[in-house]
Design a protein around this nucleic acid. Structure first.
Length: 735
DNA sequence: AGTCCCCCCATTTTT
DNA sequence: TGGGGGGACT
């Protein structure tokens, strides 16, 4: 068979990876080096050149988005679709195994998935029942503890317990949490992976079946795997199967949530015959951008080593702008953005990246003022929205009345006269009888354990769910969703709230019906009964495992705003890295340990390598954070980029700008742009150098008010920052 | 039961 | 500065 079309378009290294005969292969794929391309072509190669069956291929990714993209690209390359091939996320695939082998995994058949929000609520409830001091041990911290243990593959019973308060308390909560999950038939995200791993270990015949099936295992973003994910892979691969992992140690930015870069080294230990292929040719960025990235990342100690290069030219220098404050920074960025757009470019080819979400506000304000459309990534995803989660909780109750999480959520939403006292009473009955909240409700009503008023209210809830359940049994999925939305009073509940928010919520509820209508599960065989609970259950699983796009796909051409973390994997012609300041980026929480700092540096590396043609970096001399103004030094990362790659932009009138980065100022060639911020009705502007009779020379950082009444903030060389009223302080402008 | 107010907190986020 | 959560008050 002619397989040349699979290899022809690739470079030597890519070809080496795609057609490599080695059983175990580690591909170190630099940013923009065609990583996904290699994975997709590798699969094509297996199918065509090696005549592998689609059934024998397992491809694992981290996000649903990349799983979809990979599947799509394979199908378009091969002009065929492959139903037997498993392409999905670790969680998606593990979940699929658990649905099939629920018995062997020690689960109930209709187990439900808890998302982070459900999990936190459950932990809170447990802490309350254990009388844990919330001030000392916040639920969030307990949740974090539980998740990190699960990431490491540890259950409460496996943890050595030292007699310190912290471990003792955490273990107590963890244990109670495990019991609550088991009782309610619930598993959280970490548990999905943990159970799937245990499924292998405890059921040799199941493991053997899948080991025999998946001859070819491919893993994307390997540097982001945590301990349990790697363990799961290793066991599945066994000694016979092919395992190809693709990753980039320089782009590992999720250490804080359990990802282990060490897995890359460990891979070479566990599979000592593994061959390593490096993809270093970059097809994305200019040489200037790559040089900056290479230089920056070379400051990290523990690296496998990699140097990106391109056949393309140098391109433009990286522009560096020193803003007076965050408003000036935002204005500068939006002005450049406007230029970009006026030059006939698309707004959607430009992105503003920042370290923390809080930075987006100022940028949004500036974009809004300019009337420039923008789109923010991140924030609440569709299936995580309050109103959607409420509606889903009703759907969950249709399947399983004993779902305590769902009961807690909607027993009084919309309000039906079941208050805190009543709920507490139900909880205590449930505890005493060791039964679900639903059963406790029934008991309370039947045995008249509460006031008639409360009893009636609870009865109303029970009857509502029964009614919904009965009606739903006759309906198809989308009709079920519609019925629930219309018969629970959720719409009226939100209408009462009023305002723009309420309207959006109601629209979302309508959108849920559409989503249900469009739902088809590729993992489920054709001819599935649309009215069955199993189909509804599959829909609920999808809602938990794939939280949906952040925003409805807007067609308008818009500037992209996102954190550096969410930018991973994306590329833009024009990129702004905003807030390049010590304490913000690198963030102050990570600055004092090497591991943290190196991860910040990798994050910066990710940011730089997002840019295709032009990169801007900016920092502000003063920034308002948490309500107070801080003076900021430029990020050390700026200094880790060679001078000749940088072009420092200055305001026209600001002569001899101050800077904290004194060591290197003057060596960068500076461009000038106009667009000063003037203090209204005065001849002063921000950034201007002034002299004061007592304090000496300084630079204007900020102002309030106008004319003679204006106050200005001056950062004096000798005495630091001061606020002065213009009519009193005699400031002299330095030319 | 619902509203209001105060206090506390403040990296990054996928599944 | 601003959002969310919890407690207190009506």
């Amino acid at each position: 068979m002619d397989v040349s079309h699979i290899l022809d378009s690739l470079n030597d290294e890519q070809r080496n990876a795609v057609a490599n005969p080695s059983q175990h292969l580690l591909v170190l794929a630099g940013a923009g080096s065609g990583k996904t391309r290699v994975l997709v072509h590798r699969i094509a190669w297996l199918l065509e050149a090696e005549q592998a069956s689609p059934y024998s291929i397992l491809a694992v990714t981290f996000t649903n988005k990349s799983a979809r993209e990979m599947r799509g690209r394979i199908e378009s390359l091969m002009a065929n679709s492959f139903t037997g091939m498993w392409v999905g996320t670790f969680h998606g695939l593990a979940h699929r195994l658990l649905r099939t082998h629920w018995k062997e995994a020690g689960l109930v058949q209709d187990f439900q998935i808890l998302d982070g929000d459900d999990q936190l609520r459950l932990v809170k409830r447990i802490n309350r029942s254990l009388k844990i001091d919330e001030d000392k041990w916040p639920a969030k911290q307990c949740q974090w503890y539980i998740n990190s243990q699960k990431d490491e593959g540890l259950r409460s019973g496996n943890i050595d317990h030292f007699e310190d308060d912290y471990t003792k308390t955490m273990l107590q909560v963890y244990k109670a949490y495990e019991e609550a999950c088991d009782r309610g038939g619930m598993i959280d995200f970490g548990e999905i992976l943990l159970r799937a791993h245990e499924l292998w270990l405890k059921n040799p015949q199941v493991l053997e079946h899948y080991q025999r099936r998946f001859k070819h295992i491919l893993v994307d973003e390997f540097q982001d795997t945590n301990s349990i994910q790697y363990a799961w892979l290793r066991v599945l691969a066994g000694t016979q199967n092919q395992l190809m992992v693709v990753g980039d140690d320089d782009q590992s930015i999720y250490g804080w949530r359990g990802a282990k870069i060490e897995n890359i080294q460990q891979f070479n230990v566990d599979f000592s015959d593994a061959e390593t292929v490096r993809l270093e040719q970059n097809y994305r960025s200019t040489s200037t951008i790559l040089k900056a990235a290479n230089n920056l990342i070379s400051n990290n100690q523990s690296r496998l080593g990699k140097n990106l290069w391109t056949e393309d030219g140098d391109g433009e220098q990286i522009s560096l702008y020193e803003a007076f404050n965050e408003q000036d920074e935002a204005r500068f960025i939006v002005d450049r953005m406007q230029d970009w757009f006026n030059n006939g470019n698309r707004r959607s080819d430009a992105a503003i990246l920042y370290r923390s979400n809080a930075q987006s506000r100022e940028l949004e304000d500036a974009l809004l003022r300019m009337g420039m459309p923008y789109r923010i990534y991140g924030g609440h995803r569709f299936y995580e929205r309050l109103e959607i989660k409420n509606a889903l909780a009703y759907l969950r109750l249709v399947i399983n009345r004993d779902d305590d999480t769902a009961v807690e959520r909607v027993i009084n939403v919309p309000a039906r006269g079941i208050g805190g006292r009543t709920i507490e009473q139900v909880r205590s009955v449930a505890r005493a009888e060791n039964c679900s909240l639903w059963q406790a409700c029934a008991k309370c009503v039947n045995e008249s354990l509460m006031t008639s008023r409360a009893s009636n209210a609870v009865l109303g809830f029970l009857e509502l769910i029964d009614e919904l359940s009965l009606a739903c049994s006759e309906l198809e999925l989308a009709e079920k969703a519609e019925y629930i939305v219309n018969h629970t009073g959720l719409i009226q509940h939100h209408e009462k709230e009023g305002g723009e928010k309420a309207r959006a919520r109601i629209e979302n509820l309508e959108e849920l019906v559409t989503a249900a209508n469009n739902f088809d599960d590729p993992d489920i065989d054709e001819g599935f009964d649309l009215k069955s609970n199993a189909f509804l259950s599959a829909f609920l699983d999808k809602a938990a495992l794939d939280a949906g796009e952040t925003q409805a796909h807007e067609s308008e051409d818009a500037v992209q705003l996102m954190t550096l973390h969410s930018a991973k994997g994306l590329e833009f012609h024009l990129v702004f890295l905003a807030g390049m300041e010590e304490g913000l980026f690198p963030h102050k929480m990570s600055i004092d340990n090497i591991a943290g700092l190196e991860e910040e540096r990798r994050l910066c590396y990710v940011g730089i390598t997002r840019a295709r043609t032009k990169l801007y970096m900016s920092h502000a001399e003063s920034r308002r954070m948490h309500g107070e103004v801080n003076l900021c030094r430029p990020s050390r990362f700026i200094n880790e980029i060679p001078n000749e790659l940088l072009d420092e932009i200055r305001m026209k009138s600001s002569v001899s700008r101050p800077s904290f980065g004194k060591t290197r100022i003057g060596s960068r060639v500076s461009s000038e742009i106009s667009g000063d911020i003037e203090v209204p009705e005065t001849d002063l502007s921000l950034g201007q150098r002034v002299v004061h009779g007592k304090f000496g020379e300084g630079v204007i950082l900020n102002y309030e008010g106008q004319g003679p009444n204006a106050r200005v903030q001056v950062n004096f060389d000798a005495v630091g920052s001061k606020w002065l009223v213009l009519s009193y302080a005699k400031l002299e402008v330095l030319a």
